Amino acid sequence: MTADTAQTGPLILGGTGRIGRALRRLADDGHWPMGRAALWHGRRGDYAWDMREAPPALPRPVRGVVVLAGVTEGSPDALAANTDLALAALRLAARDGLGPVLLMSSAAVYGREADPGREDSAAPAAPYGEAKLAMERAVAAHVGRLGEQAPAACCLRLANIAGCDQLFGAMSAGPVTLDRFEDGRAPRRAYLGPLTLARALDALCAADTLPPVLNLAQPGAVGMDEILDAAGARWAWRAAPPGALPRTRLDTSRLAAAIGAVAPATAPGLVAEARMAGWTLA
């Protein structure tokens, strides 16, 4: 399937989840031009498909496939659906000659590893991270079985998405209680603004080649207290409980090699992008 790339966007599978809704808001408001040309999937979307069934024909050409569809919580059996959804997307892409296929994995595959997390390692510490790593391995195996007929596929180990993660969700619900470690600092996390995510997806869809796995984050780690202050949220400290993780950070050198440098994350920038994508403070 070919098309004028100036007139087509990606197929977004799972466009009704939190990240999908944020990206759709950016597209509808004109902040993500490629998204306005996207084909948005859902049970009742532009492309209606129950991903447990055989995929219907696409109504028009697309440029790349972005797989947001996934399961974030539940039993191990429920989380195993992440692999099923990824393989369904690959079968569609192979059938229609689509690519690249960008599949959302997670920084959770690094578990409690010393940062920065690098793509050649993984040590998940919770069922969600284990499920995402299993998905990555199933994708690699499926691509290997298809050989030359396989679509280009890249599993993206996502950082926290501003406006879509637990911290922003907590701010939307009311006052926040934040861990403080013995050094007086708050947790620091790898982040990615939703507009930066949209632009990175554009660049990844246009890349000549992609590795099987790639970290997707803005460089650095941002203090959660900085984000709360930038958003004007109400919050208070508590002593960090045993086992709390002070910092997560992702190595973004391979991302920069693939699509060019991405601006470091800042708390004001993350809050601004979250608001552009529809997030609001309580």
Rank of each mutant, 00 (worst) to 15 (best):
M1V: 14
A6V: 01
P10V: 11
G14Q: 07
G15Y: 03
G17N: 12
G17M: 09
R18S: 14
I19D: 01
R21C: 02
R21D: 09
A22F: 11
A27P: 10
W32Q: 10
M34R: 15
A38P: 04
W40G: 11
D46I: 03
Y47K: 08
Y47Q: 04
A48Q: 02
A48G: 14
W49N: 02
M51W: 04
R52C: 01
P55Q: 10
A57L: 15
A57T: 05
A57C: 05
V62F: 01
V62I: 14
G64T: 06
G64W: 06
V67R: 04
L68Q: 03
V71T: 12
V71C: 06
T72K: 11
E73P: 00
P76K: 09
A80S: 13
A80P: 03
A81H: 12
N82F: 06
D84P: 00
D84A: 15
L87V: 10
L92M: 10
A93G: 07
L98P: 02
G99K: 04
L102N: 13
L103D: 10
M104A: 15
S105L: 12
A108D: 13
V109K: 05
V109E: 11
V109T: 13
A114V: 15
A114Y: 00
D115S: 13
G117L: 03
R118N: 05
D120F: 03
P124N: 08
E130M: 12
A134G: 07
A138L: 01
A140H: 06
V143G: 02
L146K: 08
P151F: 06
P151K: 13
C154Q: 11
C155N: 13
C155K: 06
C155H: 05
A159N: 07
N160Q: 14
G163E: 10
C164Q: 13
Q166F: 02
Q166Y: 00
A173H: 09
A173D: 14
P175S: 09
T177G: 08
L178D: 05
D179P: 01
R180Q: 08
R180E: 07
R180K: 01
E182C: 00
E182T: 14
E182H: 04
G184K: 11
A186P: 14
A186M: 02
L192Y: 04
C205I: 13
T209D: 15
L210K: 09
V222K: 02
L228N: 04
D229S: 13
D229T: 15
A233C: 08
A240W: 10
A240N: 09
P241G: 09
G243S: 11
G243Y: 05
A244L: 05
T248R: 12
T252K: 09
R254N: 14
R254T: 15
L255P: 11
A257T: 14
A257Y: 05
A261G: 02
A261M: 10
P264D: 12
A267M: 11
A267E: 11
A274F: 03
A274C: 11
T280R: 15
L281D: 03
